[in-house]
Design a protein around this nucleic acid. Structure first.
Lengths: 224, 224
DNA sequence: CCATATTGGATCAACTTTGGATCAATCAAG
DNA sequence: CTTGATTGATCCAAAGTTGATCCAATATGG
């Protein structure tokens, strides 16, 4: 076994933290003890700790100790799968208004035609929550596609996989009555109009309104 | 078994690295030990290492060791790996301003203290682009963590893996001169102040300004 | 409130490990 | 044979580790 250097120790500890051996806000053993248990000099261990601190995994407070500042990744093995509908809405609230703005910049005629088509399909599905929901997902995906930004397209794709989850399915049937669907359809049309007339801010505002409606109907359903 | 030559060894090691046996930033065993374990002379092994270094998979630091520089490609989704720096900025433009707003809502004292710490570290790294970049990534991750939204935390985590990609690393050195770093530091402070005083919109605006600066310095570097 | 123990921070010179380089001897393939 | 690569040995310079010591900040307990 070769003599281990600071980088090796750092790698080892990084894995420990990511594996959850040490959890967020927990204090590590004192550097002297740690050095001993790794069989390495305290200076070397301190170098390792500094590396991890620079990566933002640890925080050391002189006189007090060294603390873990990140959550271990296994705690969120599938963040997408475990996220709640409200978390999802917040994430969409972050992404989609700006996607609308980019859509105005990069969207082409055929993109808007696709969305038009999907709007029509949603309007024909006022009484069919499942069909509506499918078209709705496709609409928001089309919106992302029109940005021509592969990263955003992928992120929206990831987010949309949540919608096929059980809890989400149940929520959908609780929230999607014909009145709500009509309201959504009206908003989709407004968004599309704003995009077509190349008004980025208006499109973004409409999208926020749309998501706000979704959030409201969600919290209302949760209270029932 | 025929006697293995340098190219054979290189192939074998290349496969090990791509399979993830050795992870990014991890140190390989010393060349003497490696040579022994491959049953080959150290000179031959060094030739193999040189081949891999020329391919950009490894980096050897005399007196220290040989380190893996590439990330296991299987770990990175294609969409994330293939995205350009400008796409990345657009994605951050979508996510981070709203993350700031949520941060005002859900952030706790200790979250802001962590960010404060990271600001201090970035300010100490005005002349060290690599150290600055690490702390910067950690700052934006801390911001996401403070939202307590596991989906957003995960999204930012995905986005941050992009930054460790090769093309990005090169860009970083082109863009991060001391003046730019100082400007970034000023903006980080402003964001943190706005968060502390619980002003969601001001924080979001500061973040937009920050990202706009980043976009500018990127396009400027691309023109050079 | 203070005294004391414990914690991390910093420094230093001696030592060890690391990769870099070279070269004559040896081996394998054409 | 001749050519090309591998071998094994040796020396080198760079970098890192060590172990010791002193310091400053914090925590603890009376």
């Amino acid at each position: 076994m070769a003599r281990r250097n600071a980088t090796d120790i750092a790698s080892e500890m990084r894995r420990s933290i990511e594996a959850g051996t040490y959890r967020r806000f927990e204090r590590l053993p004192p550097s002297r003890k740690l050095a001993e248990s790794f069989g390495v000099a305290r200076n070397t261990l301190r170098d390792a700790l500094n590396q991890l601190e620079n990566e933002g995994l640890l925080e050391t407070r002189p006189g007090s100790g060294t603390y873990v500042t990140v959550q271990d990744q296994n705690q969120i093995p599938d963040a997408v799968g475990d996220s709640t509908p409200l978390e999802l809405i917040d994430a969409r609230f972050a992404l989609e208004p700006h996607i609308c703005r980019l859509c105005v910049l990069h969207g082409r005629r055929e993109d808007f035609d696709t969305m038009e088509e999907l709007c029509a399909r949603m309007e024909a599905a006022t009484n069919d929550p499942v069909a509506f929901s499918e078209a709705d997902t496709a609409f928001h995906r089309a919106l992302a596609s029109a940005t021509r930004n592969s990263l955003l397209i992928w992120l929206i794709g990831q987010i949309n996989t949540v919608r096929s989850l059980d809890e989400w399915m149940r929520m959908r049937h609780l929230t999607l009555d014909p009145d709500i669907i009509s309201e959504y359809n009206r908003q989709h049309r407004q968004i599309l109009e704003a995009l077509r007339s190349r008004e980025p801010e208006r499109a973004a505002v409409m999208m926020k309104e749309h998501l706000e409606t979704a959030r409201l109907s969600l919290t209302r359903a949760a209270e029932t």
